[in-house]
Computed example of a mutant assay.
Amino acid sequence: MTTYLPGQRVVLIHTSDPHTRLRPGAVGTVRRHDLRSNTVAIAWDDGSTLAMLLDDGDRIALALEPQAVTADTPDAEHPTPVEDPAPDPGLLTPPVAASDAVAYVTELPPCDIHRAMSDTVIPAGFDGSTRLGPWAYMCDGCFKAYGLGLGVGRGQRLILGRRPDLGTAADSGLD
């Protein structure tokens, strides 16, 4: 279970509250985290004070600070985490067989991290677990910064197209 500390900036990933004006991507500041009820009290930037009930399906993640990225940053199009340590390089590219940890798709989904933080649409190349908490579709840069690697329980590379060993419907007799 992730513990949120007072003062940490968070972003709303999902809430099941039908009456709130908050939408995914909303940003706020943690006021307190009641670990017994797993409820996080948040002062949202739009003035809302809606608490997140994490055991009831609400989801938040540590916020990224787009302003922390400058032209001097090596990869300026990828946001920097707030109070988040650098990823362990050993987790980013574990050895996997070429056929393992891949999923063939007909269309690449957008990077969830870019979409949540800046409403930017960048094609994702990975689907995986993140250091931010939830699984996400991630572009290459976000996967390097936030992904937990490839393999079972970690993630998979998304490849546009049809799996080579499937052939066509005519080849398989499934006309």
Rank of each mutant, 00 (worst) to 15 (best):
A169M: 10
G151D: 02
I159L: 11
I13W: 05
I122P: 04
R154D: 03
T70M: 04
P89A: 07
D56R: 14
R131N: 10
I122H: 08
V69C: 15
N38G: 02
P24Y: 04
L62D: 07
A101S: 13
P66E: 05
A68V: 03
H19Q: 12
T120I: 11
Q67R: 14
L158N: 03
I159M: 05
S37I: 00
D56P: 02
R162E: 09
G147C: 01
I13M: 05
A169K: 13
P18D: 04
Q8L: 02
A86Q: 13
L166H: 14
R115F: 12
W44H: 09
A51Q: 09
D165G: 04
V40S: 05
S99P: 00
G167Y: 01
G141N: 05
Q8H: 08
L54M: 12
I159Q: 06
T3Q: 11
D175Q: 15
L132M: 13
S172P: 00
D119C: 08
T130S: 14
V40G: 05
G47W: 01
V11H: 04
S99G: 06
A61E: 05
W135N: 15
M138H: 06
A43P: 06
R9E: 03
T106D: 15
Y146A: 01
D100C: 08
V102S: 06
D171Q: 08
S172T: 08
V82L: 15
V30M: 01
L22M: 04
G167L: 00
E107G: 09
C111E: 03
D45T: 08
